[in-house]
Design a protein around this nucleic acid. Structure first.
Length: 340
DNA sequence: AACAAGATCAACCGCTTAGGC
DNA sequence: CGCCTAAGCGGTTGATCTTGT
């Protein structure tokens, strides 16, 4: 048999939470924790709410260290970079932004950041799908518009600030630097500690550079294995502060299309040269024991990709499928599976 | 000042996944 | 192994706030 039903929807309060309810929930959780059972919690806490609602309220609002207010340029960068790589996996993105919830990030993306990225158009035109207006040439001229918004200028500041401490791969034609401005030391990485230490922003966090786009870093001389460490910051998704590591505990679905590099040599990535175009063979071990090889071009993602994602998402109710379709254009699965 | 339109974001909905039975 | 439910997650909604006319 299964478990008891979630809640009787007819007898639960809905809508905005009152300060009294917030107080009750917060007090209860601070004293007793969630007990691993959200369904039973509201009754114990004296709340006439669905457990699901309590969970959401706690995770998105009442939980300690929740950060509200303006997103920084750095956060903007992280969000758009991750979005380019993993799509709308808000909970995963949230793990890289301590204090931010997936809901927050999702709202921010949908209401502000997306528009910033598309902000090359006047505000009065931004509701029109840009891809139906812009030629590829226009898109590729993005950097020349980079001072049109704070986001753009911050993003491109690194693009223009070429120096030996930055590894980035400006795409030959289009140059989306959301993907690029994470500073990376010039030495080859072999472990998380190195990346984290040399990137102050990522101290105590994942070395995001490796998540954003591993592909962007491989041209560094020879094989530059980027390895995820463990994540100790709270995930917005479950509030349990469990270890969330994109490299180690990422869900199966997150691994299939994202060419994350993993520690423990679970991945064996080789750089190849094929007719002048670099690509990477990636060997990704899935949780089910399969080893999954993908191939990806060196150019990886750029602004156009993000814009296409935005565009295709707005044209479809199934954003996941849309995202994957874009990804599939970039990634050629060889369809080789190895069972352990 | 009043109204409309747009922007924001908390909350809900519904689907997927994991795990108990 | 299949059924069932809780938890988790992303998409969507709608109330409220802000801005423009």
């Amino acid at each position: 048999m299964g478990r008891a039903p979630c809640c009787d929807k007819a007898n639960v309060k809905r809508g905005p939470w009152s300060p009294e309810e917030d107080s009750k929930l917060k007090d209860y959780i601070e004293k007793h924790g969630t007990g691993g059972n959200w369904i039973a919690l509201p009754q114990k806490a004296g709340l006439k709410r669905c457990g699901k609602s309590c969970r959401l309220r706690w995770l998105n609002y009442l939980r300690p260290n929740i950060k509200h207010g303006e997103f920084s340029d750095e956060e903007d960068r992280i969000i758009c970079s991750l979005y380019a790589n993993i799509g709308s996996r808000w909970s995963i993105i949230a793990t890289q932004l301590p204090g931010r919830t997936d809901n927050d990030i999702k709202n921010y993306w949908n209401t502000k950041l997306k528009r910033k990225l598309m902000g090359l158009l006047p505000a009065s035109h931004q509701r029109i799908a840009p891809f139906q207006q812009s030629s590829p040439q226009n898109l590729s001229s993005f950097p020349s518009h980079s001072h049109s918004s704070s986001l753009s200028s911050s993003i491109y500041s690194d693009y223009y600030n070429h120096n030996s401490n930055h590894y980035y791969m400006p795409a030959p034609t289009s140059s989306f630097t959301c993907l690029e401005p994470i500073s990376v030391p010039s030495s080859n990485y072999t472990n998380t500690t190195t990346a984290s230490t040399l990137n102050p922003f990522y101290q105590n966090q994942e070395p995001l550079a490796s998540i954003i786009s591993p592909m962007q870093y491989y041209p560094i001389k020879d094989s530059s294995m980027l390895v995820f460490g463990s994540e100790t910051s709270c995930s917005s998704s479950d509030g349990s502060c469990s270890q969330v590591s994109l490299g180690r505990e990422v869900k199966q679905e997150d691994m299939g299309f994202q060419n994350f590099m993993f520690g423990d040599h679970q991945n064996m990535n080789n750089i190849n040269h094929d007719g002048g175009e670099e690509y990477v063979d990636q060997w990704t071990q899935k949780p089910n024991g399969h080893i999954f090889q993908t191939q990806q071009t060196a150019m990886d993602y750029d602004l156009e990709v993000i814009r296409n994602l935005i565009s295709s998402n707005s044209n479809s109710s199934n954003s996941n499928n849309e995202y994957l379709s874009v990804d599939e254009n970039k990634t050629e699965e060889k369809g080789v599976y190895y069972n352990y």
